[in-house]
Nucleic acid binder design. Sequence first.
DNA 1: TTCCTATAGTTCTAAAATTGAACTGTCAAT
DNA 2: ATTGACAGTTCAATTTTAGAACTATAGGAA
Lengths: 169, 169
Amino acid sequence: MKWDELEDEPCSMARTIGVIGDRWTLLILRECFLRTRRFEGFQSALGITRHLLAERLKKLVRQGVLRRIPYQEAPKRHEYILTQKGLDLYPIMMAIVHWGDVHMVDTRGRPLLHEHRSCGKMFDPVMVCSECGEPLSAKDVHVHPGPGARPSAEKGSLEKKPKVRKRAA
Amino acid sequence: MKWDELEDEPCSMARTIGVIGDRWTLLILRECFLRTRRFEGFQSALGITRHLLAERLKKLVRQGVLRRIPYQEAPKRHEYILTQKGLDLYPIMMAIVHWGDVHMVDTRGRPLLHEHRSCGKMFDPVMVCSECGEPLSAKDVHVHPGPGARPSAEKGSLEKKPKVRKRAA
DNA sequence: TTCCTATAGTTCTAAAATTGAACTGTCAAT
DNA sequence: ATTGACAGTTCAATTTTAGAACTATAGGAA
């Protein structure tokens, strides 16, 4: 598996990481969700080098996550806004923020609180099953190969049962 | 903002990215959730260089996402298993996989299907509000500074209202 | 007019991260 | 005595990223 060919892997996680897995990309997208739209805005908010910022924006546009839209002629200027594909990254963002809220806060508490406009309350995001609505946990989920699975037999980690030697204390 | 000091930022997303944002780390964690536990298992599943794999595993252990547990004496061998902190990354994983399932599939369809053992059905993960249970979307959420917010006034992207010039066509 | 500023990049060199390949060491099995 | 499995480590070559300077257009100020 090569980093530059992640998008060709038969794995939705690898493919997604091919899009958002580069250094700084998720932080750029955070800014997008906080309504930053312009080059200088991203640059000053993140302190990323201009070179890399230009690269990343170009890639995100190519991948259909952002759209580059002119907001001014003479001199020509553009701003970057999330497409629907980009907006759909929201659950990923929220999941990341929530994990940080739970596991990475210092004594002062959370940097940001989230208010759900529909119900007016401060909330946490919860991931649930689309079918029964119950919260998901790793051990309640079983994976099956889907139609787009890698065709042949796997040397995959699931089947491997390494032989045991002397047991540890 | 420096990549090596992300964990000190007053931002839960930045802090989390400091933990899982390195190249290959999320793919290593994918393997963990698929029950890979050993060095060779990760290496052969991912094709990552042994050098980097060793680095990443060390960092994840340091950060409390994995625990390194001996499973054999003579020669001493260890395996890497998810801590609770690591298991709590599950919603992030699922959100990433789901986005790929929606936006990155080829004509053949999804590589993997997920079955919810509790209800027996194939499902998609849905992110909902902990307070009202409704699905979340970016525009229904408003952010407020929390107790751990950066103390002073922000040069943040939210307040900046750049002056407009000649409008684009 | 000339200078300064704002915006959105591009270009260049140095530093850091990643890759690829080979090498180390322990023990079991042949 | 040799081979294979496992879990790394080491080192040179390549890629990425960081840091700083530079380009270009245009508005407004002096």
